[in-house]
Design a protein around this nucleic acid. Sequence first.
DNA 1: TGGCACCATCTGTGATCACGAATCCGCAGC
DNA 2: GCTGCGGATTCGTGATCACAGATGGTGCCA
Lengths: 215, 215
Amino acid sequence: MQAAVKPEIAVSAHDRVYRGLRTRIMHGQIGPGEALTLRGLGREFGVSMTPAREAVNRLVAEGALQMSSSGRVSTPEPSNERIEELAELRALLEVELASRALPRAHIALIDRLQTINGAIADVVSNRDAVGYIRTNLEFHRTLYLRAQAPAMLAMAETVWLQLGPTMRALYGRLRRTEAPQYHRLIIAALKAGDEPGLRLAVRTDVTQGLRMLAG
Amino acid sequence: MQAAVKPEIAVSAHDRVYRGLRTRIMHGQIGPGEALTLRGLGREFGVSMTPAREAVNRLVAEGALQMSSSGRVSTPEPSNERIEELAELRALLEVELASRALPRAHIALIDRLQTINGAIADVVSNRDAVGYIRTNLEFHRTLYLRAQAPAMLAMAETVWLQLGPTMRALYGRLRRTEAPQYHRLIIAALKAGDEPGLRLAVRTDVTQGLRMLAG
DNA sequence: TGGCACCATCTGTGATCACGAATCCGCAGC
DNA sequence: GCTGCGGATTCGTGATCACAGATGGTGCCA
């Protein structure tokens, strides 16, 4: 939850496993309900069970993984109510983050956002689900970094993490043919300095896809 | 982050340590900047280093503890900017939670809140800082449980956790002579079904003390 | 053919240990 | 008296191991 914001120089074994697993989950490279084992992760990352367990426990604490009563670990399959709640949480946090970023959004940032948006169009045309999720999150993160609100951003990333496996399933169900239109609305609102428009565009961009999945 | 919402029957060693440390931090029984050691915690809870380290790592991930580059663990001393950001986060989340609890708040809940508010008056007159923090959080949690939004409540509790050591320092600085007046405003707004009033009362209750400390 | 019990295997848990690094305390030198 | 230095101590990290419980597959019985 914290490591995402401050990169840290620490490169301990459990950190490698944690980071690797975290991005894998957040980018939707692991489907919902998939099982993981400590020994398997240890082998995969070339470490023993101890750091693997630490990484897994941390991700369980963040809600990115769930643990059965017997200690078995798997990616969660959230209920529709939970998905909808997480989407509301995204809206709540990200609207605030965008709103705080607005007064600091100069032209260089907007250019960068437009570049990322172009990259999204590329991965979409390739039907690359993981690439789409990664680039989409990069768009949002780039904007929110300007808000200078690390704790808030960390919370938003925790929500992304919990939605990772679901987003992948969502992408498969959505017939997506172009870059998200709401990103263009976000950029337009940033250019115009239009705060109400920005809040609405972010909220819509964040909730529309997930609401379709949950409903 | 999750364990707070679903009590779980699991009573593993690292869970005992985690829960014990967590409530101790959240209730302000540990001052800011205080150091902890794995071996010390292990001795204290009667377990070895392994479960102690798991509990500590989890709390570090939640921002309740900080870890130096050499792995030393201590409670964080947040900067004023961070305190203010966490207060804003509390406002954002708790206003939403209260607003969602409002339509479900029947008379039994309001009675319970009034009882808790009475208990706050007691601990305040005893100058019992830990008791004050605990009872105050119980007031908020009781209300928010009605929102039926577990993920949102878990996030709010994570923020409380991060503010735990600071709240203790705050209490010592504040010359508090009576139960918080804004709690009475919250109860009044609940009785009247007045949503804007409720939102304002919660926001004020949550931010006033911390803003005083940070500012 | 379908269901059930049993056993081999796999899984997480926690204690212990060796290792390297950081910290702390006291002592000597200025 | 104060600062800088060196060694003893303490610290976190990660590997290994024994153990208990769950899991899953196989063969037997109805």
